[in-house]
Amino acid sequence: MNSISKAFSLAKKEGRPALLTYTVAGDNSKKNSLKILKSISKYADICELGFPHNTPIADGGQIQTSSYRAIKNGTKIQDVFKIVKDFKSSKFSKPVILMGYFNIILQYGQNKFLNDCKKNKIDGLIIVDLPWPENKKFASKCRKKAICFVQLISPTTSKRRLNSIVKDSHNMIYYISMLSTTGGKLKVSPKKIIYNYKKIKRINPRKNCVIGFGITEKTISSLKSADGLVVGSVICKEITSSLNKRQNPVTKVSNMVKKLKNKIL
């Protein structure tokens, strides 16, 4: 069993959903983003790490701000790999999923990118703008390297697509809770979200399915029955607000993730 599946089954044993965090590599500095990863890994089960892009078409304001901050302080894809490498050699390391836009990979070279992912022990990839079926080739390249390519499913995904996407998915699927960019206010009832989530699970119960978008301290406990829950924008927002208040983003984020974890225990 690979590390992502292990993380899910561990959470299941404890009778709770896996907690997935999203932070942007290099936000607010290269050093701090590593420190943040290290400190939140005590509570998080899987760490998603964004590689920043300056023309994102699906990110809300909070993640955009984090991405621009990371790009501004010179974060390049090599830095992203370095951060993961250092994180992976630390004591409490967790599975890492890189998340970003396809152009960065295209310019780096698809094979070189995957080789470097493998070398730096990256466990999975989420490519926001490479939907199914366009992602078939790239996803199979990932599979050959034992890197989990995470398929995304949204409320607008048709039933036919749903079946095909689940069939082609690896061991983790990401369900986007609502029509929104990241960080929007949850505008759909948790009940409805879980209803849609179950539709995915029914197609193949063995695939780990996580829910993301609009999840905050307030909403997280209402979605506890999922395999995993992703929290991103509120973390990015916390970094921004701690910088504005001249507080330490590392401790602030760490405290927040601890609280989030407590809500789903």
């Binding site: 499913i153 949204s154 607008t156 048709s158």
Partner: peptide, 14 residues
């Protein structure tokens, strides 16, 4: 060209 879009837009584009 192509369609490098988030999953959510697949349906409205279709």
């Amino acid at each position: 060209g192509g369609n490098f879009v988030p999953e959510t837009l697949k349906k409205p584009i279709n």
